[in-house]
Amino acid sequence: MTTSRLKNLALGTLVLGSLVAFSSCDTNGSKGSETARLQIALTDDPGDYKEVWIDVKEIRFNMTEADDQNWAPLPGVQAGMYNLLDLVNDKDTVLADAQIPSGKLGQLRLVLGDNNYIITNRGEKLMLTTPSAQQSGLKLNIHQAVVGGIINKLTLDFDVAKSIVEAGNSGKYILKPVIRTVLTAVGGNIKGFVLPDSVQTAVLAIQGTDTIASTYTSAGGYSIRGIDAGTYSLHYIPVDTLFKKYVKDGVTVNLGQVTTIDTVRLQK
């Protein structure tokens, strides 16, 4: 979508959703620190099977160090069947995209259902038993901070070769998941203030001719969250056409950081 078209949309409507492209925006900068966006992705190291299917039912999270209390279901989990061998060579899939309290994420529990199985290279389907994950869930220790204003991406790296164990010579296989967790920051945040604060203003973050993200001011404040690191032009477009548009070039966004812009004063 071109810059000129988005400017016209900004002047003609107050519907933010039509302006946002792959971003998370917050019209009140003070709220950004209360919650953190947690995105959980699943990936895999190759194993000597044709297919490995796991039955994801739920993910629970704990913002404390206590093992026996304070657990809560993670919202937005994409429950279902996942073939881990579709997720090799740096591919992943998003299991959840949720808002949780910012702070230190203590632990997760990955809860699996009963329908876990492998397809061998000979085409045989062999069911997997998962005693621990079927009950309270497989506990994953995180013990890292999740930060407001950015996307916190937690990758669950499933090691198939170590996770599937043959039970003696019985021909039965047990799923004992070995998962490495990697928490990284994705994108950064821009926030600032526009005067007069009584004039609602569209704020667009633009690279070249592409509008990457946008929002509107609320009582003068604005925040654009979770955009890629890089350099942007910020275009300020007042809804009240008595005020002039304003452009601020060279705004740098750094990974996992908040870029605070000097107060913009609109002119007539």
Rank of each mutant, 00 (worst) to 15 (best):
S30N: 13
K245D: 12
L9V: 12
Y222H: 02
Y236F: 14
S214F: 00
A213L: 03
N254W: 12
D92T: 06
K153H: 06
L266P: 03
Q207I: 14
T181P: 00
Q78S: 14
G256N: 04
I190K: 01
A229I: 00
L108D: 01
T263M: 07
T129V: 14
R225G: 05
G76Q: 08
L156R: 03
G32P: 06
A133E: 07
A41H: 00
G221T: 09
D262A: 12
A21K: 11
V247C: 02
G149R: 00
F193R: 11
L156H: 03
G80P: 08
G123K: 02
S136L: 13
G221L: 05
N70A: 14
K125C: 07
M127S: 10
G80V: 06
D240L: 03
N62I: 04
V15A: 11
L16N: 09
K125R: 10
L140K: 03
I100T: 04
V52Q: 05
Y82Q: 10
Y216A: 04
E166D: 12
S30Q: 13
V194S: 01
V178K: 08
A21M: 08
A41Q: 07
N8A: 12
S223R: 00
L6V: 15
K104T: 13
W53F: 15
I174S: 14
W71T: 12
I151P: 01
P46D: 10
Q78T: 11
V194M: 02
A229D: 09
G208P: 14
T43V: 03
V77T: 06
Q39P: 05
A36C: 06
D44N: 11
L19G: 09
I59W: 11
D210P: 04
G106S: 10
L105V: 11
V111T: 05
D86I: 04
V165D: 05
I227W: 00
P131H: 11
I179H: 02
L140F: 03
T217G: 01
A36G: 02
A66I: 13
Y173F: 15
G226E: 06
V147Y: 01
N89P: 02
L175G: 08
V146T: 02
